[in-house]
Simulated assay, not measured.
Amino acid sequence: MANLIPVAKSVGSNKIVPTISIPYPLGDPNTPKEEQWKLRYHRVGVALEALTADVKEQTVFSVKI
């Protein structure tokens, strides 16, 4: 999971799951708690899927809900 995708690519990460921001990678404190939970649950789910994915080259996983 990374919030600076170009940096993750430049250091050779092969599986990249985008996050929200630097101080709050998995949430936005300006949103309701229910919305934050859904967002975090989804991002962590994508990250778990990325761990089991067989990739041949650098892959940025989609996090659209």
Rank of each mutant, 00 (worst) to 15 (best):
M1E: 09
P6W: 12
P6D: 13
A8P: 04
V11K: 14
S13I: 01
S13W: 01
N14V: 08
V17Y: 00
T19N: 06
I20F: 07
I20S: 08
I20D: 08
I22M: 01
I22C: 05
Y24H: 09
Y24W: 06
P25E: 11
P25D: 10
D28I: 09
D28S: 12
D28P: 08
P29F: 14
P29H: 14
N30D: 09
K33L: 13
K33M: 11
E34W: 07
E34P: 06
E35I: 11
E35V: 12
Q36T: 01
Q36N: 13
L39Y: 03
R40Q: 12
Y41G: 10
H42R: 08
H42Y: 06
R43Y: 08
G45V: 01
G45L: 11
G45M: 09
V46H: 14
L48G: 09
E49A: 13
E49F: 08
E49N: 14
A50K: 11
A50W: 12
T52R: 15
T52H: 15
A53G: 03
A53Y: 07
D54E: 08
D54K: 07
D54M: 05
V55C: 08
T59N: 12
V60C: 03
F61E: 09
F61D: 07
F61G: 00
F61M: 10
S62W: 02
V63K: 02
V63A: 03
K64F: 02
K64V: 02
K64G: 03
K64P: 09
I65Y: 03
I65W: 00
